[in-house]
Design a protein around this nucleic acid. Sequence first.
DNA 1: CCCGAATGAGACGTGGATGTCTCACTCGGG
DNA 2: CCCGAGTGAGACATCCACGTCTCATTCGGG
Lengths: 188, 188
Amino acid sequence: MSVDRDHVLREAAALLTRKATASMDEIAKAAGIGRATLHRHFAGRDALVRALEELGIQQFEQALDAARIEEGDAAGAVRRLIDEVEPVAGMLAFLFTENQLYENGTNEGWNRLDTRVQRLFSRGQEDGSFRLDLTPAWLTEALYGLIGTGAWAVQDRRVAAKDMPRMVAELLLGGAERRAETERRMKR
Amino acid sequence: MSVDRDHVLREAAALLTRKATASMDEIAKAAGIGRATLHRHFAGRDALVRALEELGIQQFEQALDAARIEEGDAAGAVRRLIDEVEPVAGMLAFLFTENQLYENGTNEGWNRLDTRVQRLFSRGQEDGSFRLDLTPAWLTEALYGLIGTGAWAVQDRRVAAKDMPRMVAELLLGGAERRAETERRMKR
DNA sequence: CCCGAATGAGACGTGGATGTCTCACTCGGG
DNA sequence: CCCGAGTGAGACATCCACGTCTCATTCGGG
């Protein structure tokens, strides 16, 4: 009977990522509940969006923890991170799109996570596994962008959900150009 | 005196990409004109968005033509395309975000250009310069996503506008991992 | 210099979304 | 079995953005 709060937020994120102007009524229907119930759980649209940001940041942090991005080689850490993020890619896409986060003087919680990701790329550069001509800031943005693009492609059935992490990781780390190392990895 | 239509559309795209729920008044102010004047040039919000799509598609097509993506090696063609697209990256980011384009039964003009880009990646795979384990459809989506991310990073001053094309092209083609070929290219 | 076209500011009515409320219903625990 | 908490549907007033209109002003060409 009781409404699954996380489920509502997931559906809301998926809808709002597709159609940012969706009305509260549309959001409620997408989540399979009545508009009144939606208002009972979230005071208003603003409160809903803030809850969305909060949950997204929390889930992203859990992914960072679960992937143990501070351990092992940097490339492996990036792969683990993308694997862990996949189930909540929709939420992250919403977060990345929702720049309101940036306008209102950068969000504190987000900054903490952002720094953590940037450090991962810095570490990869320092230990020689990542190239030095692409800044950690750009690699971080690119990671977000590719995850968002991937989540989108999955929603539109252009890519299967199970393939998404590999697509994102391979492109981000290895790029599109063919090379010997890629051939070797493919054969494993 | 007369309003610069393209300038208005550019500003509108930049604003709407950041804040999709921006009101007509905000759009007008962002473009430096009055709300009445905005309405004189575009019958309504829908008309504005349609004009935005039209201009974006037109500019993207011009970029595809100018880059002569059907000629030369595929990697070079991708680099030229990104260079040509850079000035209108904001418009393209809007187009990519504006999924309404996909909802309303895919847009005809867009499909034509999308096919053209996919063919570029297919060509690269056939001539052996691109890897085969990433589908042309995904590489195409990734290109759009990275261009959008790049445009965004430039807007937020995280990346200099002149560096954006290189950042996007290098990541898309070469990826983040260090390798001998990259070192060689850097020394040129 | 002067006239006309275009603009900016603002008033105004309208429609749709919002937030609140009521009421009947349903489900689950005691 | 029964009661209460939680829900869906809908009514309702309110508010905001929209689209239209007017009017004074400004800018540029003739």
